[in-house]
Design a protein around this nucleic acid. Structure first.
Length: 666
DNA sequence: GTAGGGTTAG
């Protein structure tokens, strides 16, 4: 056995004698054989790598830069999150050559140690000569770190070394300057010497990211050679910049599309809030038999979450299983979030339990899911479980936990967490956390405490914070405060129709109809249009959208017939329409008609017609539930013996046997 | 005899 010490290796270290089977003493293994061990992709566990390390030391080939380089590269793999150890290995390599330096600099970049990459470059130039492989990595590091000074200096070195014409270095440089917003420097680089198609793509991408549309379009038109990436850069940049029409036009013109082309369109629609179109284009993708991969699938799941398209989401889940696509942290989180946001907390939980890789955002999605379903105890329990592990909660975790407390009325618990979050979790309370607390205190009727908190905030309270207080005023009928807060809100957000509606509803509730008309006039003068209520039902993968007064659905006649029956049954059960939340001062009968045809009721009627008895009906709304719809839906769940799950803009309502999971507290 | 750039990402 070799006598080389292994005491610096991470424990548990149990050397394995790789030569045993072949009866070759480790110390006699040829260098090629040792190198081959690094060839395979089978180095997936740190333990195995550690064993290989031992073998390398015992074989005496550690001095060989090919071997130590291969070893270093493995340790530097961010997958092992063991980069500090990689650096130790690096420091034990005598006289590192340019390959070793390049590996360590690249390792820094991949492990997000950006300034370390620049630092090592500084050390490197003292005793090894950088080559053309060194610079793209460095430019990338400067770009991510937004290290403008360093980037320019390194660019200077490139020019001095006379390798500025290398297209790989050039494209990375263009990308870096564009990411600094220094389009002039990027352009200079682009126009010096030859550019290949990737340099063109990078320059176009830079223009798009900096919002210089015309220049991007001009270059694209001028390109001597285009590849699929050129089209994708344009489509993605246009779609991200909100120019979906232009993006779509190019997309339709493309002769060949890859997953990135489809994904760019899907993401473009999602970021514009056009979820239905996102799903439609995804369906078109399947018709054209392009196989979706994990990137686009997670986007599709996000779209499903937003509009509650549970059948589509389930389809994705089945697809993942069918194609044995592994649930990594990102995809798994998207899936569990979809289930939670589509009302199937049970399925979301199942996914969460199944997941092998969980990141903090995975826990956040699960805690947040429990919170919006009103399952505060479970959310808090999961929060304690999270802390038992090594995972550290972040600001978003605390938002989930405080939301859970707010929806369940856990005042003391919420206050305690809020007051100790800096000390215990190292998270400074931000606007969102104050918003949660105002919500929590307000919902529990603690108005002066809520106001004190707002006055004590270290930052300026935003509309969300005041909005939480106004919402609480509605619940508790605190009209004096409502009026005051409402006025602040109308000033803060003069374009947000929801604020006008809420204030007007509060006036209507106390019968101050002259104030209701004042608000109405104010809206008219300011040109504010109310956001129409939209309810969505996903039926076997097709998304059905309902709006009041929109007769475009092919089954509208049937739906109206069903609504009539529902209305009669509701009356028999003693329900009288609550019209206090109708914004306009029309007469009572018209108001009644208005609430009877709220989008939510249309969606319920549609669901009752098209699903088998006993099947749950899932509805997603863009606004909050109105009082009348809430009490009507409770009764409908009893009369028709159906579970109805409604997601409103903020939380969930599970209607079952005449009651709602929110306990009429929303 | 090792290696490198641009476009998708919750």
């Amino acid at each position: 056995m070799s006598s080389i010490s292994t005491s610096h290796l991470p424990s548990p270290f149990k050397p394995v004698d790789f030569s045993a089977e072949k009866n070759i003493p480790t110390s006699k293994l040829p260098q090629k054989t040792v190198l081959k061990l690094f060839d395979s992709k089978s180095i997936t566990s740190l333990q195995y790598l550690t064993q290989l390390h031992g073998l390398v030391l015992r074989s005496g080939h550690f001095q060989d830069h090919y071997v130590s380089g291969a070893l270093l590269k493995c340790y530097a793999n961010p997958h092992f999150s063991n980069f500090d150890f990689a650096l130790k290995v690096f420091s034990s390599i005598p006289n590192p050559n340019v390959f070793i330096w390049n590996i360590v600099i690249k390792g820094c970049l991949e492990n997000n140690k950006l300034f370390k990459a620049i630092y090592f470059y500084g050390r490197m130039v003292i005793d090894a000569r950088p080559n053309k492989f060194t610079y793209p990595t460095l430019f990338k590091a400067c770009s991510v770190a937004q290290a403008v000074q360093e980037g320019r200096q390194i660019h200077g070195h490139v020019v001095k070394h006379g390798i500025g014409s290398d297209v790989h270095i050039k494209s990375a440089g263009i990308h870096m300057y564009a990411s600094f917003g220094r389009l002039e420097d990027a352009r200079k680089m682009f126009y010096s010497g030859e550019s290949d198609v990737v340099c063109w793509n990078t320059m176009i991408d830079g223009y798009l990211k900096c919002g210089v549309l015309e220049a991007a379009k001009g270059l694209f038109a001028q390109m001597p050679v285009k590849n699929i990436g050129s089209w994708n850069v344009m489509i993605n940049g246009l779609a991200k910049g909100g120019n979906l029409g232009d993006a779509r036009k190019l997309f339709d013109e493309m002769s060949e599309r890859d997953e990135i082309s489809w994904s760019s369109m899907v993401d473009g629609y999602i970021s514009a809030g056009r979820y239905k179109e996102a799903l439609e284009i995804f369906q078109q993708m399947q018709r054209e038999e392009t196989r979706p991969g994990r990137f686009i699938l997670s986007s599709v799941l996000a779209a499903c979450s937003n509009i509650g398209a549970i059948d589509q989401g389930r389809w994705v889940h089945a697809y993942l299983k069918r194609n044995s696509i592994k649930l990594d942290a990102v995809l798994g989180t998207a899936l569990l979030d979809m289930y939670a946001k589509c009302g199937r907390l049970d399925m979301g939980w199942e996914v969460f339990e199944e997941m092998k890789e969980r990141e903090i955002f995975t826990w956040n999605a699960m805690i947040g899911g429990l919170a919006i379903h009103g399952r505060a105890e479970d959310a808090l329990e999961l929060f304690s479980k999270l802390q038992e592990g090594r995972m550290k909660p972040n600001g978003i975790t605390l938002v989930g936990v405080l939301t859970a407390c707010a929806h369940a009325g856990f005042v003391d618990k919420g206050l305690r967490i809020f007051q100790t979050m800096r000390e215990f979790y190292g998270v400074d309370p931000e606007l969102e956390h104050y918003g949660c607390m105002v919500d929590l205190l307000g919902r529990s009727g603690l108005f002066s405490e809520a106001e004190d908190l707002i006055n004590s905030m270290p930052m300026k309270p935003n509309a969300a914070v005041w909005g939480a207080l106004l919402g609480a005023c509605r619940i508790h009928g605190n009209f004096d405060l409502a009026e005051r807060v409402g006025k602040i809100l109308l000033e803060l957000e003069p374009q947000n129709s929801g604020r006008y509606v809420l204030l007007s509803n509060i006036y209507a509730k106390v019968g101050r109809f002259d104030d209701v008309s004042k608000i109405r006039k104010l809206m008219k003068d300011r040109g504010i249009k109310t956001v129409p209520g939209v309810s969505i039902v996903d039926l076997n993968g097709t998304v059905h959208e309902f709006k009041m007064g929109d007769g475009s659905h092919p089954q509208m006649k049937e739906i109206y017939r069903k609504l009539k029956i529902i209305k009669e049954r509701l009356q028999m059960a003693g329900h009288s329409p609550d019209t206090s939340q109708v914004l306009f001062d029309i007469d009572e009968e018209e108001k009644e008609t208005a609430v009877n045809y709220h989008s939510e009721k249309l969606a319920i009627a549609f669901g009752l017609i098209n699903t088998l008895p006993g099947k749950r009906i899932h509805i997603v709304k863009n606004l909050r539930v109105c009082d009348d719809c809430h009490s009507a839906t409770k009764l409908i769940s009893q009369i028709f013996d159906r579970e109805i799950i409604v997601r409103d803009r903020v939380r969930y309502h599970h209607f079952k046997n005449g009651t709602c999971s929110c306990k009429d507290f929303w």
